[in-house]
């Protein structure tokens, strides 16, 4: 008797989640068409989360993804999810809007294996305990050799007070590890830019979350 897929109960009420597999080296074909060298469709989900008329402080975020050998990962694909300047998640993705809470990017070999996002600084979002979390961006990392995507948070180094009070960030006991979640501000060409390098393994390994 052949088993029906995806109908294996873990309790009488529940199905098992479909299992994850690596996005592989060619994830760009499906989710980052230009990075694969392929033509784009009319609308693509990509890295310009904020258009010039979006409300808030306009920022650029750049970074790399580094493996356990200290080498740059040249085929990583990332997804960002963040609140708007008022601290609200805008679920409705619509490219006609000035700002979208969701964005995608990839490390591009021709651009120094860096990823980048054009966005606005997110506002603070309330934690269920009532306190405010410091401004942050959720990042998911997919790549060849990554069997299930890694989830992290990017915080900002110029939010010293808010970072200290953040109910999530303050749960990290190790100061060294907490630093792996904090993007460093750099002023360049009149643009406010933050750098956030993600270390998958080894010294300075980024904190990854389970939720």
């Amino acid at each position: 008797m052949m088993k029906q897929p995806n109908t294996q109960p873990v309790s009488e009420m529940m199905l098992r989640e479909t299992a994850s597999q690596t996005a592989g080296p060619y994830v760009h074909i499906g989710l980052a068409l230009a990075a694969a060298g392929n033509p784009e469709r009319d609308e693509e989900i990509w890295s310009e989360m904020a258009k010039p008329d979006a409300t808030g402080e306009h920022i650029e975020i750049v970074g790399t993804v580094i493996d356990g050998n200290g080498d740059l990962v040249r085929d990583a694909f990332l997804e960002a999810w963040q609140a708007d300047a008022e601290g609200h998640y805008q679920a409705d993705y619509d490219l006609r809007k000035p700002f979208n809470s969701f964005g995608r990017t990839a490390t591009i070999a021709e651009q120094g294996s860096e990823w980048s996002l054009k966005t606005i600084k997110p506002g603070a979002v309330a934690h269920p305990n009532g306190k405010l979390m410091a401004p942050h961006i959720n990042l998911a990392i997919f790549a060849r050799g990554v069997n299930i995507h890694l989830q992290t948070r990017l915080y900002f180094d110029d939010e010293v007070e808010a970072n200290r009070e953040c109910p999530v960030l303050s749960r990290v006991e190790s100061d060294n590890r907490r630093q792996t979640l904090i993007a460093k501000r750099e002023e360049a060409d009149g643009i406010t830019r933050y750098r956030f390098d993600i270390r998958l393994q080894g010294p300075g390994e980024t904190i990854f979350f389970d939720f």
Binding site: A83, G145, N147, V168, L200, F208
Partner: peptide, 22 residues
């Protein structure tokens, strides 16, 4: 070389940041 060695940090209380999406 692409697998974290440290344990994942459990978000004990998921927040709007995790519970919403596009």
């Amino acid at each position: 070389a692409r697998s974290p060695q440290q344990a994942l940090m459990s978000m004990q209380q998921p927040t709007a940041s995790e519970l919403t999406g596009p």
